[in-house]
Amino acid sequence: MITKRIIPCLDVKDGRVVKGVQFVELRDAGDPVELAKFYDEEGADELVFLDISASHEGRKTMVHVVEEVASQLAIPFTVGGGINALEDMKRMLRAGADKVSLNTAAVLNPTLITEGSDFFGAQCIVVAIDAKYDESLQSWRVYTHGGRNATNWEVIDWAREAVKRGAGEILLTSMDKDGEKSGFDLALTKAVSQAVSVPVIASGGAGNGQDFVDAFEKGEADAALAASIFHYKETSVKEIKSYAKQQGVSIR
Protein backbone atom coordinates (compact mmCIF):
# COMPACT_ATOMS: atom_id res chain seq x y z
CA MET A 1 0.00 0.00 0.00
CA ILE A 2 1.16 3.46 -0.80
CA THR A 3 1.49 5.36 2.46
CA LYS A 4 0.01 8.72 3.39
CA ARG A 5 2.62 11.45 3.46
CA ILE A 6 3.31 13.95 6.25
CA ILE A 7 4.95 17.10 4.91
CA PRO A 8 6.43 19.94 6.97
CA CYS A 9 6.47 23.28 5.17
CA LEU A 10 9.30 25.76 5.68
CA ASP A 11 9.01 29.44 4.79
CA VAL A 12 12.34 30.74 3.57
CA LYS A 13 13.19 34.42 3.31
CA ASP A 14 16.58 35.57 2.00
CA GLY A 15 18.02 32.12 2.66
CA ARG A 16 16.74 31.75 6.24
CA VAL A 17 13.74 29.93 7.63
CA VAL A 18 11.31 32.39 9.18
CA LYS A 19 8.15 31.99 11.25
CA GLY A 20 9.62 32.05 14.74
CA VAL A 21 11.09 28.61 14.76
CA GLN A 22 11.71 27.12 18.19
CA PHE A 23 14.35 24.49 17.85
CA VAL A 24 16.62 24.92 20.81
CA GLU A 25 18.68 21.84 20.11
CA LEU A 26 19.65 22.98 16.67
CA ARG A 27 22.86 24.87 16.23
CA ASP A 28 21.20 27.39 13.98
CA ALA A 29 17.45 27.52 14.12
CA GLY A 30 17.09 29.58 10.98
CA ASP A 31 19.18 27.39 8.72
CA PRO A 32 17.00 25.61 6.15
CA VAL A 33 19.41 22.71 5.74
CA GLU A 34 19.63 22.08 9.49
CA LEU A 35 15.85 22.10 9.76
CA ALA A 36 15.43 19.91 6.73
CA LYS A 37 17.78 17.36 8.26
CA PHE A 38 15.92 17.53 11.55
CA TYR A 39 12.60 16.80 9.83
CA ASP A 40 14.16 14.03 7.78
CA GLU A 41 15.38 12.33 10.96
CA GLU A 42 11.92 12.75 12.45
CA GLY A 43 10.47 10.80 9.55
CA ALA A 44 9.08 13.54 7.30
CA ASP A 45 8.07 11.95 3.99
CA GLU A 46 8.71 15.03 1.96
CA LEU A 47 9.42 18.74 2.47
CA VAL A 48 8.07 21.92 0.97
CA PHE A 49 10.15 25.10 0.86
CA LEU A 50 8.25 28.27 0.22
CA ASP A 51 10.44 31.14 -0.94
CA ILE A 52 8.94 34.33 0.46
CA SER A 53 11.86 36.58 -0.48
CA ALA A 54 10.72 39.80 -2.06
CA SER A 55 14.05 40.80 -3.58
CA HIS A 56 15.98 39.49 -6.54
CA GLU A 57 18.93 38.78 -4.25
CA GLY A 58 16.74 36.71 -1.96
CA ARG A 59 15.57 34.66 -4.90
CA LYS A 60 19.11 34.00 -6.00
CA THR A 61 19.96 32.87 -2.48
CA MET A 62 17.09 30.38 -2.66
CA VAL A 63 18.86 28.52 -5.47
CA HIS A 64 21.83 27.94 -3.16
CA VAL A 65 19.50 26.75 -0.40
CA VAL A 66 17.98 24.24 -2.81
CA GLU A 67 21.43 23.01 -3.90
CA GLU A 68 22.50 22.64 -0.29
CA VAL A 69 19.34 20.75 0.73
CA ALA A 70 19.59 18.47 -2.31
CA SER A 71 23.19 17.64 -1.59
CA GLN A 72 22.52 16.65 2.01
CA LEU A 73 19.09 15.01 2.01
CA ALA A 74 17.77 11.79 0.52
CA ILE A 75 14.05 12.63 0.60
CA PRO A 76 12.00 14.45 -2.01
CA PHE A 77 11.25 18.15 -1.74
CA THR A 78 9.21 20.80 -3.49
CA VAL A 79 10.05 24.47 -3.97
CA GLY A 80 7.36 27.10 -4.32
CA GLY A 81 7.11 30.87 -4.26
CA GLY A 82 8.26 33.17 -7.02
CA ILE A 83 8.10 30.56 -9.78
CA ASN A 84 6.73 32.62 -12.65
CA ALA A 85 8.35 31.22 -15.78
CA LEU A 86 9.80 28.08 -17.28
CA GLU A 87 13.24 29.50 -16.52
CA ASP A 88 12.41 29.64 -12.80
CA MET A 89 11.33 26.00 -12.89
CA LYS A 90 14.52 24.99 -14.69
CA ARG A 91 16.65 26.82 -12.17
CA MET A 92 15.03 25.10 -9.18
CA LEU A 93 14.87 21.61 -10.68
CA ARG A 94 18.46 21.80 -11.89
CA ALA A 95 19.51 22.95 -8.43
CA GLY A 96 18.09 19.68 -7.13
CA ALA A 97 14.42 20.25 -6.26
CA ASP A 98 12.18 17.31 -7.17
CA LYS A 99 9.09 19.39 -7.82
CA VAL A 100 8.12 23.02 -8.22
CA SER A 101 4.88 24.48 -7.04
CA LEU A 102 2.98 27.11 -9.04
CA ASN A 103 0.27 29.25 -7.53
CA THR A 104 -0.58 32.77 -8.75
CA ALA A 105 1.50 32.38 -11.91
CA ALA A 106 -0.52 29.31 -12.91
CA VAL A 107 -3.80 31.19 -12.60
CA LEU A 108 -2.52 34.22 -14.51
CA ASN A 109 -0.86 32.11 -17.17
CA PRO A 110 -2.20 28.54 -17.23
CA THR A 111 -0.04 27.58 -20.22
CA LEU A 112 2.86 27.66 -17.77
CA ILE A 113 1.54 24.41 -16.27
CA THR A 114 1.59 22.71 -19.66
CA GLU A 115 5.01 24.09 -20.54
CA GLY A 116 6.50 22.79 -17.30
CA SER A 117 4.72 19.48 -17.54
CA ASP A 118 5.82 18.88 -21.12
CA PHE A 119 9.37 19.81 -20.35
CA PHE A 120 9.93 18.07 -17.03
CA GLY A 121 7.04 15.64 -16.72
CA ALA A 122 3.81 16.04 -14.77
CA GLN A 123 5.39 14.55 -11.64
CA CYS A 124 7.48 17.73 -11.25
CA ILE A 125 4.61 20.18 -11.44
CA VAL A 126 2.54 20.91 -8.35
CA VAL A 127 -0.28 23.43 -8.60
CA ALA A 128 -0.95 25.15 -5.28
CA ILE A 129 -4.48 26.43 -4.76
CA ASP A 130 -5.53 28.88 -2.05
CA ALA A 131 -9.23 28.23 -1.41
CA LYS A 132 -11.84 30.15 0.52
CA TYR A 133 -15.51 29.34 0.93
CA ASP A 134 -17.83 31.74 -0.86
CA GLU A 135 -21.46 32.04 0.25
CA SER A 136 -22.65 33.37 -3.08
CA LEU A 137 -21.00 30.51 -4.97
CA GLN A 138 -22.04 27.95 -2.36
CA SER A 139 -18.61 26.57 -3.03
CA TRP A 140 -14.93 27.49 -2.73
CA ARG A 141 -13.26 30.27 -4.69
CA VAL A 142 -9.61 30.42 -5.81
CA TYR A 143 -7.49 33.27 -4.42
CA THR A 144 -4.13 34.49 -5.68
CA HIS A 145 -1.30 36.77 -4.54
CA GLY A 146 -1.00 35.15 -1.13
CA GLY A 147 -4.74 35.16 -0.59
CA ARG A 148 -5.23 38.85 -1.33
CA ASN A 149 -7.02 38.64 -4.68
CA ALA A 150 -10.22 36.75 -5.40
CA THR A 151 -10.46 35.16 -8.84
CA ASN A 152 -13.45 34.00 -10.84
CA TRP A 153 -12.32 30.40 -10.58
CA GLU A 154 -14.29 27.93 -8.55
CA VAL A 155 -11.79 25.61 -6.81
CA ILE A 156 -13.06 22.29 -8.21
CA ASP A 157 -13.10 23.69 -11.75
CA TRP A 158 -9.63 25.15 -11.41
CA ALA A 159 -8.23 21.91 -9.94
CA ARG A 160 -9.66 19.95 -12.88
CA GLU A 161 -8.33 22.52 -15.34
CA ALA A 162 -4.86 22.46 -13.75
CA VAL A 163 -4.72 18.65 -13.99
CA LYS A 164 -5.96 18.73 -17.55
CA ARG A 165 -3.12 21.11 -18.33
CA GLY A 166 -0.54 18.81 -16.79
CA ALA A 167 -0.36 19.30 -13.01
CA GLY A 168 0.89 16.12 -11.33
CA GLU A 169 -0.26 17.05 -7.86
CA ILE A 170 -2.50 19.60 -6.12
CA LEU A 171 -1.43 21.41 -2.96
CA LEU A 172 -4.72 22.60 -1.52
CA THR A 173 -4.71 25.23 1.20
CA SER A 174 -7.87 26.22 3.03
CA MET A 175 -7.71 29.92 3.84
CA ASP A 176 -10.69 29.50 6.18
CA LYS A 177 -8.86 26.93 8.28
CA ASP A 178 -5.30 28.22 7.97
CA GLY A 179 -3.82 28.96 11.38
CA GLU A 180 -6.98 27.87 13.23
CA LYS A 181 -5.55 24.51 14.34
CA SER A 182 -9.07 23.12 14.33
CA GLY A 183 -8.47 20.54 11.62
CA PHE A 184 -8.19 20.52 7.85
CA ASP A 185 -11.15 21.53 5.68
CA LEU A 186 -12.43 18.01 5.09
CA ALA A 187 -15.31 18.90 2.75
CA LEU A 188 -13.01 20.93 0.52
CA THR A 189 -10.27 18.31 0.54
CA LYS A 190 -12.67 15.50 -0.26
CA ALA A 191 -14.34 17.44 -3.06
CA VAL A 192 -11.04 18.18 -4.77
CA SER A 193 -9.58 14.74 -4.16
CA GLN A 194 -12.62 13.14 -5.79
CA ALA A 195 -12.57 15.58 -8.69
CA VAL A 196 -9.02 14.92 -9.85
CA SER A 197 -6.97 11.87 -10.74
CA VAL A 198 -3.71 13.10 -9.18
CA PRO A 199 -2.60 13.18 -5.52
CA VAL A 200 -3.95 15.97 -3.30
CA ILE A 201 -2.02 17.48 -0.39
CA ALA A 202 -4.27 18.94 2.30
CA SER A 203 -3.00 22.12 3.94
CA GLY A 204 -4.27 24.62 6.49
CA GLY A 205 -5.69 23.87 9.90
CA ALA A 206 -3.56 21.06 11.29
CA GLY A 207 -3.74 20.95 15.08
CA ASN A 208 -3.23 17.39 16.25
CA GLY A 209 -2.82 13.78 15.14
CA GLN A 210 -6.53 13.21 14.72
CA ASP A 211 -6.69 16.10 12.24
CA PHE A 212 -4.25 14.26 10.02
CA VAL A 213 -6.15 10.98 10.35
CA ASP A 214 -9.36 12.82 9.38
CA ALA A 215 -7.66 14.46 6.39
CA PHE A 216 -6.65 11.03 5.09
CA GLU A 217 -9.79 9.09 5.95
CA LYS A 218 -12.60 11.64 5.64
CA GLY A 219 -10.87 14.15 3.36
CA GLU A 220 -9.36 11.43 1.15
CA ALA A 221 -6.09 13.38 1.03
CA ASP A 222 -2.96 11.62 -0.15
CA ALA A 223 -0.70 13.81 1.94
CA ALA A 224 -1.06 16.49 4.59
CA LEU A 225 1.09 19.53 5.17
CA ALA A 226 1.67 21.65 8.26
CA ALA A 227 4.04 24.37 9.35
CA SER A 228 3.53 26.02 12.70
CA ILE A 229 2.59 22.98 14.80
CA PHE A 230 5.91 21.42 13.81
CA HIS A 231 7.97 24.59 14.05
CA TYR A 232 6.60 25.51 17.47
CA LYS A 233 7.04 21.93 18.63
CA GLU A 234 3.42 21.58 19.63
CA THR A 235 3.77 18.13 18.20
CA SER A 236 6.29 16.34 16.04
CA VAL A 237 6.28 14.46 12.76
CA LYS A 238 7.19 11.34 14.73
CA GLU A 239 4.25 11.79 17.11
CA ILE A 240 1.77 12.41 14.29
CA LYS A 241 2.99 9.39 12.38
CA SER A 242 2.84 7.02 15.30
CA TYR A 243 -0.68 8.24 16.20
CA ALA A 244 -1.92 7.86 12.62
CA LYS A 245 -0.38 4.41 12.41
CA GLN A 246 -2.21 3.39 15.60
CA GLN A 247 -5.44 4.56 14.01
CA GLY A 248 -4.87 2.22 11.11
CA VAL A 249 -3.61 4.73 8.54
CA SER A 250 -0.97 3.39 6.18
CA ILE A 251 2.17 5.29 7.22
CA ARG A 252 5.84 4.83 6.45
Binding site: M1, I2, T3, K4, R5, D45, A122, Q123, G168, E169, S197, V198, P199, D222, A223, R252
Partner: peptide, 18 residues
Protein backbone atom coordinates in the same frame (compact mmCIF):
# COMPACT_ATOMS: atom_id res chain seq x y z
CA UNK B 1 -5.95 3.65 -12.90
CA UNK B 2 -9.04 1.48 -12.63
CA UNK B 3 -9.52 -1.75 -10.71
CA UNK B 4 -11.04 -4.97 -12.05
CA UNK B 5 -14.19 -3.89 -10.19
CA UNK B 6 -14.29 -0.59 -12.03
CA UNK B 7 -13.06 1.59 -9.18
CA UNK B 8 -10.67 4.37 -10.14
CA UNK B 9 -7.44 5.09 -8.30
CA UNK B 10 -4.70 7.68 -8.64
CA UNK B 11 -2.03 7.70 -11.29
CA UNK B 12 0.86 8.63 -10.96
CA UNK B 13 1.82 6.11 -8.30
CA UNK B 14 3.39 8.76 -6.11
CA UNK B 15 4.84 8.49 -2.64
CA UNK B 16 6.37 5.94 -0.28
CA UNK B 17 5.41 2.32 -0.81
CA UNK B 18 6.56 -0.88 0.87
Amino acid sequence: GITAEGQTYKVPHMGWNS
